[in-house]
Design a protein around this nucleic acid. Structure first.
Lengths: 329, 329
DNA sequence: TTGAAAGCGCTAACAT
DNA sequence: ATGTTAGCGCTTTCAA
């Protein structure tokens, strides 16, 4: 692989000059530029980004720490982040930190720290918060509390949950349950749960919450929901993510429960996938594109200036989708 | 961030010695080792992987080029690859090369080439094959012909398609159609199409193929399928991917077509997602875990020895899933 | 068993 | 407008 000095030799100039034309700074004569460009082409020269970064420059790499990309919501979010970061000239290191695997997450953070990325966007938190606080790379969090000076971007979980619950109640349902993920402190789930609880309380209705941790194996999840529906069929269910909502509907169908006559289901996330391949599912849409732009925007600010003053929380609006299907179209 | 020389100073030894204990080679006295370890701990030392790689070492980075992670199949595949690569001590650079975006793919390949990754696994090919041939990094392909010395790993598309088509015919259906992705040369789709065609021919039946490129916007796809089903309802449809199969079923439902009595649908891919959230869908399961292990295995061989002699094609067995649901359970 | 010193490929003062 | 040169943090001969 050709290097800077090879180009310099072929073009008959010094390495500095070549470096200058590559980085386009200082004063260069047009003639020199052309000579250098020609030499670069001839040698099919590619700058060694390692050497460049070592010099103190940026690595142009961003670490993305999420629970994984096999879940449609995170798949879409990560894809969007990658797309937009690419346009900003950054590449992405993908770090899947499946729920519960604190060790892997820790490993990743350590590696990313070791001078390898210009910034981190994290949407997993198996690691204790204090360890996150120690990270000195620019860091933006998705939907989770990671530490005091770490901005959180999220959709309006509380409003979304209120919207979902109200949509259910609007159909006349009164016996409305919620199916949430793990109810850990700092988890977005909490706001969704609160939104549900508040609406129920305001209407003087009794809340019922069933907790199914995010990492639960699908088979177990299936069994849990089946058991629940077998013992009692609520009039409405608010599942705090679409996949769970879909599962509720599938199971209801196998149990011969009429949807939406007997049971109305609403989800949360509203990915492109569910909207297109499961359009009858009522849900609350998270603005994925807005979320990723904003996170990248904030990250870029922190990269430019490590002390950039940012808000602690950025809450993006959600919108309901297919709520009318709760009424049977 | 502490560096090697800081550790050396604190431990009262030379940088060479510190380097030796880090890389564990040469002869070290136990006492020196302990001193150095202590110093490393004290300073919370992290080796700078950039500097290390610059030295000619590996970067321990693998580039993953796929159409994107928002599609469940690729999401699961990429997640699996990342998981396994992590265990091998590699991190992953995620490169989404959406169908049609040859420019981005080209950019990525150029970057990855520039001394940044130890190897590449590619499952997208918007770029012309000749450009792939030029890549001199170790390279393994998923399901696509990329060049003569580039091993291809894939599921048994031909057998899978035969299986799917036969399952449809076994229900008594005769008017069986296929819905394929873009029929480009070197695309896996072709083998699936061939499998379908061969089975139909063997039974003396007329094949009908409808082509819907992978990158088609969901809305357009929806309209296309709806138009097709509105003008004529086949007895069976083999969709060469699950998402399309699901869409066919959804649309059939809205059109009041009885499934499976009037129309039987079978897909391809059999991701964890579809199997768990759409269990009534008959499909052909690609062995994702086996695919990723094998690809990584081959890649590791090529990384160790650039000239490792590998087969041109590795075809992994598929298995049918929920075929009985075609008969109405 | 340990250390000095020469790079890896590049950038950026500091000359000229 | 262009060149010389000293590093960036690390590994690795070669010597002691």
């Amino acid at each position: 692989m050709a290097k800077l000095s090879d180009v310099a030799a072929l073009a008959g100039v010094s390495v500095t000059t070549v470096s200058r034309v590559i980085n386009n700074y200082g004063s260069l004569s047009e003639k020199t530029k052309q000579k250098v460009f020609a030499a670069m082409r001839d040698l099919n020269y590619q700058p060694n980004s390692l050497a460049r970064s070592l010099q103190g420059k940026q690595t142009k790499l961003i670490g993305l720490i999420f629970p994984g990309v096999s879940h449609p919501f995170f798949g879409e979010l990560v894809q969007d982040l990658e797309d937009q970061l690419f346009k900003h000239g950054y590449r992405v290191i993908l770090c899947n930190a499946s729920a519960g695997d604190a060790e892997k997450e820790r490993d990743y953070v350590r590696m990313l720290q070791a001078n390898q990325v210009d910034g981190i966007i994290a949407g997993a938190h198996n690691m204790p918060v204090p360890e996150y606080q120690k990270i000195n790379a620019p860091l933006i969090s998705f939907d989770r509390y990671l530490g005091d000076n770490i901005p959180i971007v999220s959709s309006d979980n509380y409003a979304g949950a209120r919207l979902a619950t109200s949509a259910l109640l609007d159909t006349g349902a009164r016996d409305v349950w919620v199916l949430t993920g793990a109810n850990r402190p700092g988890n977005p789930t909490n706001d969704r749960l609160r939104g549900y609880q508040d609406v129920m309380a305001e209407k003087g209705l009794t809340p019922h919450a069933v907790e199914i941790p995010f990492s639960t194996a699908p088979e177990v999840k299936w069994a849990t929901i089946k058991r629940m529906l077998s013992s009692h069929v609520p009039e409405g269910v608010f599942a705090t993510d679409d996949m769970t909502a879909i599962m509720v509907m599938q199971i209801a169908r196998t149990l011969g429960i009429q949807i939406p006559q007997q049971l109305r289901v609403i989800g949360y996330d509203g990915t492109v996938l569910t909207r297109n391949y499961y359009p009858e599912l009522a849900t609350i849409v998270q603005p994925i594109t807005a979320i990723s732009s904003l996170m990248i925007d904030l990250l870029m600010q922190r990269i430019k200036d490590a002390d950039a003053q940012l808000e602690a929380r950025y809450v993006l609006p959600v919108r309901p989708y297919a709520a009318r299907s709760l009424l049977g179209e």
